[in-house]
Design a protein around this nucleic acid. Structure first.
Length: 311
DNA sequence: TCTGGGGTCCTAGGACCC
DNA sequence: TCTGGGGTCCTAGGACCC
C-alpha cells in the first residue's frame, strides 16, 4: 500500500522524498495549478483508489508543511480518520506557528520540551522571541536550529534519494526468555533476515551490533567492527552470538533482542589466501536465497550442528 | 502515556597516529 | 622519554523521528 501511495505522489512530480512508510514530501513549486486543487486531487485518488485516508500540509518549506499536516490531523473529528488539507498561506507563517506547542517542532522531543518549560517556554512563539544566543547557551549548536525553526525558517531541500546507513531486525518476546538455545535460535533467525535484506539491497556492512533489553527495561547495545564487510547470515550470526555471550550470563532473562549491521557499502569480495571456506559458504547462501525465494522460507534451512564455516 | 520495530544523528571517551 | 596539538576510528548511550 505504501508503494501505491508513493506512486500517486510521483504522478504529481518526480521530486518526492519518502520519509517513512506512510509519509513523504513533494516539491510542487513548479506546478501551475493552485495548491489546494492539487492536494484535493491526490487526496481523492488515495481515498478512492486505495481506500486510505490521508492528510496533507502545504507551505513554503518542509518544516511548515510537516507541521501543517499535523495541525490538520489533530483537527479531525474523533469518529473519523483524519483526512485534512491544511495550507499555510505565504505571509501567515508566524501567526500560524506562534500559538502551537514547542514539541510540534522538528527535533523537540520530551527531553527538550521539558528543558524549555523550565525556561518558561511552552509555545513556538515564545521560543521564536528568545534571543538565539540564549538558545545556543542552553542547547549548543542545536540551539541555533531550534531558533530558526521556531521562526519558520528551513531551507532544506526535497531529496529524492537517501543512502541507507544501517539495517536491523529486533523482536520483543511475549514472555521474557532465559533459555540459551531459544535465544540463540532467535538471534540466528534475525541474523538471516538482516543478511537477506543486505543481499537484496546489494550491500554489505563492517559493523555488527546487538541490542538487548532486560526484563527491567534497561537496554544496551554492543558492537564490533569486522576486518571485512559482510552480507552473510552466518557471519552476522556468529559475530552477534559472540557479542551476546560477552554481555549475558547463561540463563539470564531477556525481553528484547536485536541484530543490526552498519558501515554499509558495496559488497567487495576479497580473495582469501587460505582457500575459500567463506567463498563456499557464500555460494551456499546464494543457493539458499534462490530456493527460498522460489519455494518459501521453510523449504530449506541450515542444519542444527553447524559451525559458522561450512556445512 | 506507553509499546514495538524500525531508523538517524549526536556526544563523549579511549585508542591510536603523525 | 615526555609533551602538545590535531585528526581518525571505534564503542556505547541517548534523543529523536515515524
Amino acid at each position: 500500500m505504501s508503494e501505491k501511495v508513493m506512486e500517486r505522489l510521483c504522478d504529481l512530480s518526480p521530486l518526492v522524498e519518502q520519509i517513512s512508510i506512510d509519509e513523504a514530501f513533494v516539491d510542487i513549486s513548479d506546478l501551475r495549478e493552485d495548491a489546494m486543487t492539487v492536494a484535493r486531487r491526490v487526496q481523492g485518488r488515495i481515498n478512492d483508489e486505495l481506500g486510505l485516508p490521508c492528510s496533507i500540509g502545504i507551505a513554503k518549506n518542509k518544516l511548515l508543511a510537516k507541521i501543517a499536516t499535523e495541525v490538520g490531523k489533530k483537527s479531525a473529528r474523533k469518529s473519523e480518520p483524519p483526512n485534512a488539507v491544511t495550507i499555510v498561506p505565504p505571509g501567515s507563517e508566524a501567526s500560524f506557528l506562534n500559538p502551537l506547542p514547542v514539541d510540534m517542532l522538528w527535533g523537540v522531543g520530551p527531553k527538550t520540551a521539558a528543558k524549555l518549560v523550565q525556561y518558561g517556554i511552552k509555545t513556538i512563539g515564545e521560543l521564536a522571541r528568545r534571543p538565539p544566543a540564549d538558545l545556543m547557551r542552553w542547547f549548543g549548536e542545536n540551539g541555533l536550529d531550534l531558533s530558526r525553526h521556531a521562526r519558520g525558517l528551513d531551507d532544506s531541500l526535497v531529496v529524492t534519494e537517501h543512502e541507507v546507513k544501517s539495517i536491523s531486525q529486533e523482536t520483543t518476546f511475549i514472555q521474557d526468555i532465559s533459555d540459551d538455545k531459544a535465544l540463540a535460535a532467535t538471534l540466528r533467525e534475525l541474523s538471516s533476515q538482516v543478511g537477506r535484506r543486505l543481499r537484496q539491497a546489494g550491500i554489505a556492512g563492517t559493523t555488527v551490533r546487538i541490542k538487548l533489553r532486560w526484563p527491567d527495561f534497561t537496554t544496551l547495545t554492543r558492537q564490533v567492527t569486522l576486518a571485512q564487510s559482510t552480507d552473510q547470515d552466518e557471519e552476522v550470526y556468529a559475530t552477534a552470538l559472540s557479542l551476546l555471550n560477552k554481555v549475558r550470563a547463561r540463563g539470564k532473562a531477556v525481553r528484547l533482542i536485536g541484530v543490526g549491521v552498519s558501515g554499509l557499502g558495496p559488497p567487495l569480495r576479497q580473495l582469501e589466501l587460505w582457500g575459500s571456506e567463506t567463498e563456499k559458504s557464500r555460494k551456499l547462501q546464494a543457493v539458499l536465497d534462490k530456493l527460498q525465494a522460489k519455494f518459501g522460507k521453510k523449504v530449506i534451512r541450515r542444519g542444527k550442528n553447524n559451525n559458522h564455516k561450512g556445512e
